[in-house]
Design a protein around this nucleic acid. Structure first.
Lengths: 188, 188
DNA sequence: TATTGTTATACTCTATAACTATA
DNA sequence: TATAGTTATAGAGTATAACAATA
């Protein structure tokens, strides 16, 4: 299911490729004369041949590709709940029991306060969260999940865990734990 | 923690959860420990308290945040070359010696063909790459870097490696290698 | 004066569809 | 008919600035 339709930030990551090889529509010519001339010979078929490029080593290319694939799949799986990972992240904080203000949500999620407004508006309209004015600072609004919101959060979480299991299917349990740990170190 | 200027897709990171159920609008749970909590109801200070939320465990949240931070920093560092990581990725393939067609670039970078057009247009206009019609399939265009393009690529690469060194500063050389390896496994 | 939430705006990125020129 | 590239367009996502209410 996933693949094909996904479009990630930048990176790329070859997927199959087999097809490309056979297709052979193009194959690379020895090089027709302009610039680099002789360039590196080879030029094998399939896009995995670009793994030798410098961009393929870049951590931001790899994270973009991994994120693009993962989020694309997750969003698709969440369609049944009419939810996206973006909204889930806000709902998750609202259901955390930590009584976050919108500003805190924005800081933790690395989203602009104006983006939080729109996301909370959406969740509030469908009855998943409530805005409560903080009695200690009436400028601030505490976002809390309703019963329906907590139920929605629980169902979304199950779907997201299944999605993640799919996305990380090539990794062992130990590797998954390592990856999470490493990403956590550089995410904050 | 980093935070501040970066704006990432969504994410946040964390583990456990706990409290949610009890959570009262304001204040709430006594809970033990936690240092900071002076104020009225628990809810300790600092956004790291949200690390207990479910979203903080999600791999796509972690990759989003890590990517957002990394790309934000990299793009800022590349400003002097009037280049962005997006353009660099295309330039890198053009300079790889693999003579990629635009379609292949799009497939490898997980970008729509129409996006490749705009990126190649930009690089072509500044003389960094050339479009060469593939003699074996006149529909296809091979993108190759010019001498100036290769020079630009080399300078950008140096900047990006420095940027990555900054982004991954909290990881040991071994951890960096692990991270790259793990991301490669799930990116393709 | 400074901060929280809000609105408005613009720009980037992403996703589709249609068109051309080749095949 | 099918494919590579191109153009156009609409929608998300991201980034700023300004304003009202509150501190």
């Amino acid at each position: 299911m996933s693949t094909s339709t996904d479009k990630a930030p930048h990176g790329s990551a070859a997927t199959a490729s087999a097809a490309a090889a056979t297709a052979a529509p193009t194959a690379s010519t020895p090089e027709g004369g302009l610039g680099a001339g002789d360039t590196v010979g080879e030029v094998t078929d399939g896009i995995e041949r670009f793994l030798c490029s410098k961009v393929a080593e870049q951590i931001h290319f790899l994270t973009s590709r991994a994120r693009g694939r993962g989020i694309s799949h997750a969003n698709h799986q969440l369609e049944g709940l009419d939810l996206k990972v973006r909204q889930f992240s806000v709902l998750s904080l609202a259901a955390s029991g930590q009584n976050p203000s919108q500003r805190e949500m924005g800081e933790f999620l690395a989203l602009d306060p104006s983006q939080i407004v729109a996301l909370v508006d959406n969740l509030e309209q469908r009855g998943a969260v409530l805005r409560e004015t903080d009695p200690r600072d009436r400028r601030s609004k505490i976002i809390v999940a309703t019963d329906a919101g907590r139920d929605l959060h629980a169902r979304a979480l199950q779907i997201l865990e299944d999605s993640e299991d799919y996305t990380l299917s090539t990794l062992s349990p130990r590797e998954r734990k390592q990856l999470r740990s490493l990403l956590l170190k550089i995410a904050f």
